[in-house]
């Protein structure tokens, strides 16, 4: 195992993050604060408690998920797309590193960044509402798994994308709707029965439900299903990444 190689990629990617630290952290913090002002304070005051939890606190796990997922995807996809775009990928391809080490470096860095953003948002949320976390270990585990799997997914998008538009299109057209409709702002029990069933096909529902359980001890779907869903998604992404390196898809002629 080329640990020096993994470390080199990881450190290099993290440096980019810290070089633009303000931009990296400011936008998720501001957008989350806006959500709290609009949903938590303005609208939330007219909504009853959801399952014994105040609405302002109820949306915290969903908001953290919303930000970490989109940040994980955009960080990871950009991280691998940029070297492809400017041509520096030649060096990684000619280096004695295997696919697992390359993924570990790039995805590890992207996951770390989104994890940090997740904690910053949690901290920010503390200014607006009282938060208690019933299962802190499970909470961290869910967050780490989500950051990792969505960074993997972003890595795949970054390899697939051939221009900057394609880099944006999947997060915009697929991820944002799935997250918004995945129960970030509501419990799926609030939906009409038909939509409750349809919603169960949305994988993000399981992630948010599991994450919310770690905060409040209550969930839309059983925690076991949430774990299965996130493990399945991680496995699927790993398999896709393996296939990409196996075939050299869009990175190697």
């Amino acid at each position: 195992m080329n640990l020096h190689g993994v470390r080199a990629i990881y450190v290099y990617e993290m440096k980019r993050f810290f070089r633009t630290l303000m931009e990296s952290l400011l936008s998720p913090v501001i957008s989350t604060s806006l959500y709290f002002v609009v949903f938590g304070a303005a609208i939330g005051s007219r909504i009853d408690q959801v399952g014994g939890v105040s609405y302002g606190a109820f949306i915290v796990p969903g908001l953290i998920m919303l930000s970490t997922m989109t940040q994980a995807i955009s960080n990871a996809s950009f991280g691998i797309y940029f070297p492809k775009f400017i041509g520096t990928i030649y060096e990684v391809l000619s280096a004695p590193v295997n696919f697992f080490e390359i993924v570990l470096g790039y995805v590890g860095a992207a996951a770390t960044k989104s994890l940090m953003i997740g904690f910053v948002i949690l901290f920010t949320a503390g200014f607006f509402v009282d938060i208690e976390i019933l299962h802190p270990v499970a909470m961290v585990a869910f967050l780490v798994l989500t950051c990792t799997s969505f960074s993997l997914f972003g890595f795949i998008i970054g390899i697939w994308a051939q221009n900057f538009q394609q880099l944006q299109i999947i997060p915009l057209l697929v991820i944002t709707p799935l997250v918004f409709l995945g129960g970030s702002f509501y419990s799926i029990n609030m939906l009409p029965p038909v939509w409750q069933t349809i919603t169960l096909f949305n994988p993000v529902v399981y992630l948010i439900s599991g994450f919310r359980w770690s905060f409040f001890g209550q969930a839309d779907v059983a925690v076991g299903y949430s774990l299965l869903a996130i493990a399945g998604f991680t496995g699927l992404c790993l398999a896709l990444v393996w296939l990409i390196f196996r075939t050299g898809y869009r990175i190697k002629a």
Binding site: G5, Y12, A95
Partner: peptide, 13 residues
Amino acid sequence: NTVRFSRGLFGRP
């Protein structure tokens, strides 16, 4: 930094 990166990438301390 970019030169150091290359050395690490090729597995050198």
